[in-house]
């Protein structure tokens, strides 16, 4: 545990009412790292992710991002979210805006760029995710894979220093998953720091620097993919992996 960790999550706990959904979760990432959170449904993966950009409020622990305490009550939450991009399982594209409109809204309204600068930036990001011929399509006119790529471009347009992915391919038909994973691969190669929740184990094995296995709000086990996938130390990890790979 070095002092210059880019993201350091320490003993984070969260309750919904009486239910403890995160129990002293800890892990850390360097700049440019890819960390993948895995675990069964309801284990707290989404909640952990949402604590990082304060869409959910952790009650205990510490999350240091680039040396700053995310959980501090004095923190400007909107400022934090400017720097942390998020991609949702259900896309959550703004239904009344085109692809460009979706990616330009943040730069225009949050960063205060001019109309044309915002549009330029949006177009550049859409090109980056391979959607140069869909600038003016509305979400309802796009396939699921295309919609999710717009979702990624929307987050990238804010030039975030950390990207959060919450099961970005779970809502997609199998034949559309590849195009989204390909875009994510590209980001990894460009050195983007990414915290990803996914059930795509082969993708995780390929790109992750570390896998964190969550169950029932606890970190059961974490480590590099080869170790965790091939020689899990905990029985629960093994059982989970068996279940998930037998489904594939």
């Amino acid at each position: 545990m070095s002092d210059d960790d880019f993201l350091r999550v320490t003993d984070v706990s969260k309750w919904y009412g009486d239910e403890k959904v995160l129990d002293e979760v800890s892990f850390e990432m360097d700049r440019g790292d890819v960390t993948v959170l895995i675990g069964p449904s309801g284990s707290g993966k989404s909640t952990m992710l949402r604590c990082v950009n304060r869409l959910a409020e952790a009650q205990e622990g510490s999350i240091l991002l680039d040396g700053e305490e995310v959980l501090s009550p004095d923190l400007d939450v909107d400022e934090l979210r400017r720097e942390v991009g998020m991609v949702f399982q259900g896309f959550n594209l703004f239904a009344h805006l085109t692809a460009v409109g979706n990616a330009a809204l943040g730069p225009r309204r949050v960063l205060g760029l001019s109309e044309s600068e915002a549009r330029e930036r949006a177009e550049a990001q859409l090109e980056r995710v391979g959607l140069s011929d869909q600038f003016d399509s509305y979400p309802a006119e796009l396939s699921g894979g295309q919609q999710q790529r717009v979702g990624i471009a929307r987050a990238l347009a804010m030039e975030p220093k950390l990207m959060l992915f919450d099961e970005p391919t779970s809502a997609l038909d199998p034949e559309l998953i590849g195009e989204v994973l390909e875009v994510m691969h590209g980001l990894v190669e460009e050195g983007m720091t990414m915290l990803v929740v996914t059930h795509e184990m082969s993708f995780a094995r390929e790109v992750a620097d570390e896998i964190v296995f969550l169950d029932d709000g606890h970190v059961i086990e974490r480590g590099p993919p080869e170790q965790l996938f091939d020689h899990p130390e905990e029985e629960r990890t093994g059982r989970f992996l068996e279940r998930i790979t037998s489904h594939d």
Partner: peptide, 23 residues
């Protein structure tokens, strides 16, 4: 209007009022 629309607005750093207005 779906809940996810508000979440997405908040996630790119819009305030609650801005999200209501723009989204």
């Amino acid at each position: 209007v779906e809940e996810g629309q508000i979440t997405a607005g908040r996630a790119i750093g819009l305030s609650k009022l801005e999200t209501i207005y723009h989204v």
